[in-house]
Computed example of a mutant assay.
Amino acid sequence: MDAATLNEALQNLTSMGPEIWQAFQETLVMLGIGLSAAVLLGGPLGIVLYLTQPGQQFANRALNGVLGWVVNLVRSFPFIILMVSLVPLTRALVGSTIGPVAASVPLAFAAIPYFGRLVEQTLREIPRGVVEAAEAMGASPLQIICKVLLNEARSGLISSLTILTISFLSYTAVAGVVGGGGIGDLAIRYGYYRYQTDVMVAMVLMLVVLVQIIQLLGNRLAAKLDKR
């Protein structure tokens, strides 16, 4: 790329500053709503999946089997198909199927079981002896969950949340293709349909930078919380 072409690309991107900023904000809205749903609903789901598996304090094979089946069912849907399948529900909940808030509905549905499985796997790594010691000291189930399980697994949970955030950042780009807005929408509308390669490259670089920042912050926080 010669200097003239580079200068033209920079001028074009500068003129698109407001649209790029709006796309960035829309991506954050989708990511924020999806991750909030994952933490608030997927976290407890993962705890229940762990506590109801065989050998645990609240072992319940039937409940664990049903929850596991539902989680696997939702996770088996490719995201773009899940978005289309949830169009009636999205319209009923937010009154529209276009925009970042509407796109957040299928994102939340995908994030909840995804994070639930990550939480379950993280809790499984806690030595059984730690839980048994808490039970022997007379700790209540709530105390075991809050002061033992979550406390021991906090570093792993942060790592799981980091993985989820990065994965769903790419999902927001897919959501943009079907009317969700955001960075993916901008890349497709300008970079693909209008053959503006500079916009496509800029959006990809923005996603790369976001991923690096998220991973760096996640690694540092997980290391800080690691009790080993």
Score class of each variant (00 low, 15 high):
residue 2 D to C: 11
residue 3 A to K: 14
residue 7 N to Q: 15
residue 7 N to W: 14
residue 22 Q to A: 11
residue 25 Q to P: 06
residue 27 T to W: 02
residue 27 T to D: 01
residue 32 G to V: 07
residue 35 L to N: 14
residue 36 S to T: 15
residue 37 A to H: 03
residue 43 G to M: 08
residue 44 P to H: 03
residue 45 L to H: 03
residue 49 L to K: 05
residue 50 Y to F: 15
residue 50 Y to R: 05
residue 50 Y to Q: 05
residue 52 T to I: 06
residue 53 Q to V: 09
residue 56 Q to M: 08
residue 61 R to S: 13
residue 61 R to A: 15
residue 61 R to M: 13
residue 62 A to D: 06
residue 62 A to Y: 15
residue 72 N to V: 05
residue 76 S to F: 01
residue 78 P to L: 00
residue 78 P to I: 02
residue 81 I to H: 01
residue 88 P to L: 06
residue 89 L to M: 09
residue 92 A to E: 02
residue 93 L to V: 12
residue 93 L to A: 03
residue 93 L to M: 03
residue 97 T to W: 09
residue 97 T to L: 08
residue 102 A to Q: 00
residue 103 A to H: 08
residue 104 S to V: 09
residue 105 V to R: 00
residue 108 A to I: 12
residue 110 A to D: 06
residue 110 A to R: 13
residue 113 P to W: 10
residue 120 E to C: 12
residue 125 E to R: 07
residue 135 E to C: 07
residue 136 A to Q: 07
residue 142 L to A: 15
residue 143 Q to T: 04
residue 143 Q to L: 04
residue 144 I to A: 06
residue 149 L to R: 03
residue 155 S to L: 13
residue 159 S to A: 11
residue 161 L to N: 08
residue 165 T to N: 02
residue 165 T to C: 13
residue 166 I to W: 11
residue 170 S to Y: 14
residue 172 T to E: 01
residue 173 A to R: 04
residue 175 A to N: 07
residue 177 V to M: 07
residue 178 V to K: 01
residue 180 G to V: 08
residue 180 G to K: 05
residue 182 G to Q: 01
residue 185 D to Y: 05
residue 187 A to Y: 10
residue 188 I to K: 01
residue 191 G to E: 09
residue 193 Y to E: 12
residue 197 T to V: 12
residue 198 D to R: 07
residue 202 A to M: 09
residue 206 M to C: 10
residue 209 V to G: 06
residue 215 Q to H: 04
residue 216 L to I: 11
residue 219 N to V: 12
residue 222 A to M: 06
residue 222 A to W: 05
residue 224 K to E: 09
residue 226 D to V: 04
